[in-house]
């Protein structure tokens, strides 16, 4: 083998970089997030069913925003009834803790939604 030193250094560096997910996570507990909602609202239903909300809540909120801001339409006819389109009043009524609900999954998969550029978290819910 020619240029042994350089070639072996290159191979070692490549293997270290490529396998980083294996050694960077050594000894770390891998705990999936569990979003928590306000316990007082147990048994209530969301605007749509859970599977739909899990997959499509971001699109729903995007549509709500456009509907409210552009058309002034604040009423949503969901699969489970009639709702006011409002993140702070409707959603956060049950999902009242941003840190324990929204952020738990968003941080886990590296998402920084721009909801909070305009909306504020209500103070009484932040220390839960």
């Amino acid at each position: 083998m020619y240029d042994k030193g350089k070639v072996i250094t290159g191979i070692v560096l490549f293997v270290i970089v490529f396998t980083f997910p294996f050694w960077i996570n050594v000894g770390k507990a891998n705990i999936a997030p569990e979003p928590k909602i306000n316990p007082e609202v147990a048994g209530k239903v969301c605007v749509e069913d859970k599977a739909f909300m899990k997959a499509n809540h971001m699109q729903l909120l995007d549509e709500w925003r456009d509907s409210v801001v552009r058309d002034g339409n604040r009423t949503y006819m969901g699969g489970t009834g009639r709702y006011e389109m409002s993140l702070t009043n409707s959603c956060m009524g049950c999902h009242n803790n941003k840190a324990q609900f929204c952020d738990s999954c968003h941080n886990y998969v590296s998402l920084t939604p721009n909801c909070w550029n305009c909306h504020i978290e209500s103070k009484e819910n932040t220390n839960g």
């Binding site: 997910p21 294996f22 996570n25 770390k28 891998n30 999936a32 886990y108």
Partner: peptide, 19 residues
């Protein structure tokens, strides 16, 4: 066509941890 992204990361982290 959405997939469960949190479960995907769980799987990836499981493999990285040899679980």
């Amino acid at each position: 066509v959405k997939v469960d992204i949190v479960a995907v990361k769980e799987l990836a982290m499981n493999i990285a941890n040899f679980k």
